[in-house]
């Protein structure tokens, strides 16, 4: 019998599990990277095979860099998984700065014993999300920790993009009279996870909205409108995002509850769990503060994009020394929409 001297038994992706050697820096780790990560992520920068990726310096504009850690539980949920979520999340953080996202880096913390089949599914999903977005994952890292020291897999991603000269989006630019636009329904991601965790019967109808928003943002910027602020209301939901903008800008906000779109299943699940959709996480929505004169133009551009079909004008920026975010309720009264208190939903993204 002849033995090929350079033969390495391929990774058993179907039945194998992550073990400590996969994070050791030795041959097992090289094999995991080659047969799993590199196979899915493959691109010219990753193929350089060095400790870091060498990238072409952009010709103009300013660089934007953002990072985001992902610890969502469960790892797979209706509409997505931790893999595509970790790609979308960081792309969105870069894109809401008005930047065109260019590259991503990904770092994995794996728990010993984690099934390679699940890891393969997650990495494939990341690769697909990156491909669809046109933003390659150019470098990465893997660490393994002992059983019980991490829950399956944690992924943190970093993104780099370029903002064209002349685009300046920032929370402090909101000013009284501006209009607040929302790209679609609230609470879909958070409630998809919660419905799964709490085993709600009607959960199947709720699907995470996880999506990369840079295409929608490009369309909004292309209108040439004076966009003052863009944000993606993730953890803490719309309420938290608007309070952040109010604090940064020193202005107040007045929302109209009846104008805020919420899917009926999400509303029902929120009602059931005693949650308020205004505070529930989104992963594929954005809120924009726009000069009033440009609002209709931007809204039309949003509605023309598949991720903004249900976009709505939900309120306006007002003068308020206390910079409160307030809302006219659908009922006809008025209330404050305050910061989120405590942790409403741990490990939602």
């Amino acid at each position: 019998m002849s033995v090929r001297p350079d033969y390495v038994r391929p990774l058993d992706i179907k039945n194998g599990r992550v073990d400590l050697s996969h994070g050791s820096g030795g041959r097992a780790m090289a094999q995991l990277i080659e047969e799993l990560f590199a196979r899915h992520f493959d691109n010219e920068f990753l193929r350089q095979g060095n400790d870091g990726a060498t990238l072409p310096a952009p010709a103009g504009g300013r660089l934007v860099m953002a990072c985001d850690g992902h610890v969502v539980s469960p790892l797979f949920f209706p509409g997505g998984d931790i893999g595509c979520l970790s790609v979308h999340g960081t792309i969105n953080d870069v894109a809401v700065m008005g930047a065109k996202p260019l590259w991503l880096a990904a770092s994995f913390i794996l728990a010993e014993g984690f099934p390679l089949a699940d890891l393969d599914r997650i990495v494939a999903s990341m690769a697909q999300a990156a491909r669809e977005a046109g933003v390659p994952i150019v470098t990465g890292d893997t660490k393994v920790v002992e059983q019980g020291k991490a829950d399956g897999v944690f992924i943190s991603t970093t993104g780099v993009g370029v903002v064209p000269d002349g685009v300046r989006l920032s929370g402090e630019r909101a000013r009284p009279g501006d209009v607040i636009l929302l790209s679609g329904t609230l609470g879909d991601h958070g409630m998809a996870i919660m419905a799964l965790r709490e085993n709600l019967g009607f959960s199947s109808a709720i699907v995470s909205d996880t999506a990369a928003l840079h295409g929608l943002i490009e369309a909004m910027l292309a209108t040439g409108a004076d966009l003052r602020v863009l944000r993606d209301p993730t953890r803490g939901g719309l309420a938290t995002t608007l309070n952040e903008i109010a604090r940064q800008s020193g202005a107040g906000m007045m929302l109209d509850e009846a104008a805020i779109p919420v899917n009926s299943e999400v509303a029902a699940a929120c009602e059931f769990l005693g949650l308020d959709p205004l505070y529930v996480a989104n992963e594929g929505k954005l809120v924009a503060v726009v000069a009033a004169a440009d609002a209709e133009r931007v809204l039309a551009a949003m509605r023309a994009h598949p991720l903004g079909e249900r976009a709505a004008r939900i309120g306006s920026v007002v003068e308020d020394a206390h910079h409160f975010v307030q809302m006219t309720t659908g009922f006809g009264g008025r209330r404050i929409v305050d910061w989120l208190t405590g942790e409403q939903l741990p490990r939602i993204c």
Binding site: T328, T329, G330, F331, G332, G333, R334, R335
Partner: peptide, 9 residues
């Protein structure tokens, strides 16, 4: 009462 602003009515 607080959430819907009933007092205003």
């Amino acid at each position: 009462i607080s959430r819907y602003g009933v007092a205003d009515l």
